[in-house]
Write a protein that binds this DNA or RNA. Structure first.
Lengths: 153, 153
DNA sequence: ACTGGCTTTCACGTCCACGTGAAGGTTTAC
DNA sequence: GTAAACCTTCACGTGGACGTGAAAGCCAGT
């Protein structure tokens, strides 16, 4: 099959497949006219890549799985290198989730505090001095001493 | 104070401060020779930005906080716009954590299954022909799987 | 006078997984 | 026979937050 057909079957784009070929991740044979040619094995490889991508794996991280399949193994994760990637990704995920949960707690606390302060300020307290609180000062009608606004040097 | 001094006090770089100025986030006055000049108020603004950055806020998301401080409010989150940013970030974080936890469960299940299959294969089965597969272990990157919250670099 | 350390403005590079044309050749369908 | 639909190879663009020089100006100390 040709590139467009494979892209359709895998639910991706031709550009993506050419990109994978550039990376050496999914090389293609060529037919006489220079068109890329793929078979069902390539479709399996591609599906493996897409599945891992959906899990947030980088393309380089999918390489052990693809190599494993191409080496004739029944599944992409039948090789130790693939399992290592799984394990590293798990650790990475745990770190990331941990980190995000701490952040979430921080931001949640900040929001709660700020909402309390806002509730305490608005009813009784004076509205904070926003830029344009003061209406307009009565214009001095006599002699405007000097032009413009003195700049901060 | 000049740019290098402010950078040191805030624990960042001069390039970063120039970048913030390009974005209009932290404009600087200029002294006679064209050097950027900052004061302690700018240091506070900068600290606000860096704090939010550590929480994974994008620079544009820090703008309401900075504007709020510059308007004379006691804190960057004393304004409703800042609270909105907090709330949107919380929702974003919740979605993100949720997503990662589902991924984690998936990958964990895959690893468990693959390990079981490996244990079942290796003792009895023939050692699969995994001759010269993975040439290089993928470089340890620490990018969170998807958009939104960067990790501490 | 010279060294060293600060500053200035360009302006391109980084990372990642592609998107988006441009300009052209090939095949298929009517 | 010709138009539509495919395919090819460049090669630049995207987004975010800066990094990394280059070439030059300004200032203090010795």
């Amino acid at each position: 099959m040709r590139i467009g057909e494979l892209a359709r079957q895998a639910g991706t784009t031709t550009r993506t497949l050419r990109h994978y070929e550039e990376l050496g991740l999914l090389p293609a044979r060529r037919s006489g006219n220079g068109y890329r040619t793929y078979d069902d094995g390539d479709l399996r490889l591609l599906q493996q890549i897409r599945t891992l991508q959906d899990f947030g794996f980088g393309l380089e991280e999918t390489r052990p799985f693809v190599d494993c399949l191409r080496a004739g193994h029944p599944a992409g994760d039948s090789c130790p290198a693939s399992l290592d990637v799984y394990r590293r990704k798990l650790a990475e995920l745990d770190d990331c989730i941990d980190h995000l949960q701490r952040i979430r707690a921080e931001v949640g606390a900040q929001l709660a505090r700020a909402e309390l302060e806002a509730a305490a300020d608005v009813p009784g307290g004076p509205p904070p001095l926003c830029a344009f609180t003061c209406p307009e000062p009565p214009a001095p009608r006599e002699a405007p001493p000097f032009e413009g606004i003195p700049e901060t040097p």
